[in-house]
Computed example of a mutant assay.
Amino acid sequence: MAVAGQVLRSEWTKIKSVRSTVWTLGLAALVTVGIGMLISALSRNEFDNLAPQDKIQFDPTFISFAGMGLGQLALIVFGVLVVSNEYSTGMIRTSLAAVPQRGIFLFSKITIATLLAFAIGMITSFAAFFTGQAMLGPFKASLDDPGVLRAVIGGGLYMTLITVFSMGVAAMLRSPMLSLGILMPFFFLVSAILGNVSATKKVGQYLPDQAGQKVMQVVTAGDDKPYGPWGGFAIMALWVVAALLGGYVVLKKRDA
């Protein structure tokens, strides 16, 4: 336990001393809240022009999270940098020499980064909700409406899991450029295509981001996904566990 505590403190020092990792968290919050406010304001102005079916499916809570798609970009970068920076600089050799217990090393790194992502994710999710609802005016939702609190908490959890998934992938690939070169197209191109093409839609709905975003939805009219909010969250969590296990196996078996 004493060793684990020392490693946790060491990883905290590493993260806070690298300015780029700190800035990415702030950028994630800023982008998520800012774009959410903008889309919410536009949605308020266009609500009267919506078709009747679109008005039924109007989800003011989910609309306030419209910026999360881009905000998660910064969280992906944060997760990748936390894990793979040491590989790109060669410091991983020193770290593993100091902490030969590779499981403790990886656990400590991921624990500190996850706690940071969780704190930022929750603050951002609540901030995005309240500012977005302020922009929606008469069409806003209230935090005590059915399903809303779950969706807002789910938004923070979603941001956390995206970060942890990125860390698991980075631990497997051990390169910031390769990790980002795979994760960015995966979330911003591949997932979108698979989820919107009828032939692949049934596959796309089980990808981590599409499944995880279900927990942020309150209005489910017109949604034909075969799982509920927490079911989608569980699917995303399984992806995260698989990525972490893969990262641990690679770290355990390969030299630095």
Results as ranks from 00 to 15, higher is better:
residue 9 R to F: 04
residue 17 S to K: 03
residue 18 V to P: 00
residue 23 W to L: 14
residue 25 L to W: 05
residue 33 V to S: 06
residue 33 V to L: 06
residue 35 I to G: 06
residue 38 L to V: 14
residue 41 A to F: 04
residue 48 D to M: 09
residue 55 K to N: 04
residue 58 F to M: 03
residue 59 D to R: 08
residue 62 F to V: 06
residue 66 A to F: 02
residue 68 M to D: 10
residue 73 L to D: 04
residue 73 L to P: 03
residue 74 A to D: 02
residue 83 V to D: 09
residue 86 E to I: 10
residue 91 M to L: 13
residue 93 R to G: 06
residue 93 R to S: 12
residue 94 T to P: 00
residue 98 A to C: 04
residue 101 Q to I: 10
residue 102 R to S: 07
residue 106 L to G: 05
residue 107 F to R: 12
residue 111 T to H: 02
residue 115 L to F: 14
residue 127 A to N: 07
residue 130 F to A: 11
residue 130 F to T: 14
residue 131 T to G: 01
residue 133 Q to N: 11
residue 133 Q to D: 06
residue 135 M to R: 09
residue 136 L to Q: 15
residue 142 S to N: 13
residue 142 S to T: 12
residue 149 L to M: 15
residue 155 G to P: 04
residue 159 M to Y: 05
residue 162 I to V: 15
residue 163 T to A: 12
residue 168 G to I: 11
residue 168 G to T: 10
residue 180 L to A: 03
residue 183 L to A: 04
residue 184 M to A: 09
residue 187 F to C: 03
residue 197 V to T: 14
residue 198 S to F: 07
residue 210 Q to C: 01
residue 211 A to H: 00
residue 213 Q to C: 02
residue 213 Q to P: 01
residue 216 M to P: 00
residue 218 V to M: 05
residue 232 G to P: 00
residue 253 K to I: 08
residue 255 D to A: 11
